[in-house]
Amino acid sequence: MRMNDALLGALLLGFAGWVWWLTTFFPSFPGQDYGPNLFPRILAAGIGFCALVLLLRGLRQRAPLLVVEGWMAQPRRVVSFLLIPLASLAYILVSDPLGFIPTAFLLLLGLFLWFQARPVVALPVAAGMTLLVHWFFAGLMRVPLPRGVLDSVL
């Protein structure tokens, strides 16, 4: 998926403007011209300039607004693609209440099966990897992985 340079430039120009607007709320540093807003403003201006170049260039090129690759028309591939961010999102939302072990196991199992691994392989690998990662990080390295529902058991 690729936006036309003009569209990308316009979006970025808006972004640069938003950043600049945010910097207007920064307090000034008494007695100095270089407060907290100096660098963000320079950078917003830089991004804005690059965006403008893109915008003008895109207008000259007259490319289609949005180019979409072939796979985007195949629902199965689109789901596969989205599953990676969605799985991360699921981890963010449920790992705290549910705990690391159930979350990681379900996540791995679900992804394995969607990516067409045989259940005979998927089940033991998901369980094994989950326990291995938990043992290594929570046990050996003392990373505070969430305990969740297994709190009283662990």
């Binding site: 394995f112 990516f115 691994a117 392989v121 690998v125 992985l145």
Partner: peptide
């Protein structure tokens, strides 16, 4: 097989950035 590798790497990314 990549169908096993991709999810496992994702799990390590999740744990790694958490840590």
């Amino acid at each position: 097989p990549r169908n096993l590798l991709l999810p496992v790497i994702l799990l390590f990314c999740l744990v790694g950035s958490f840590a």
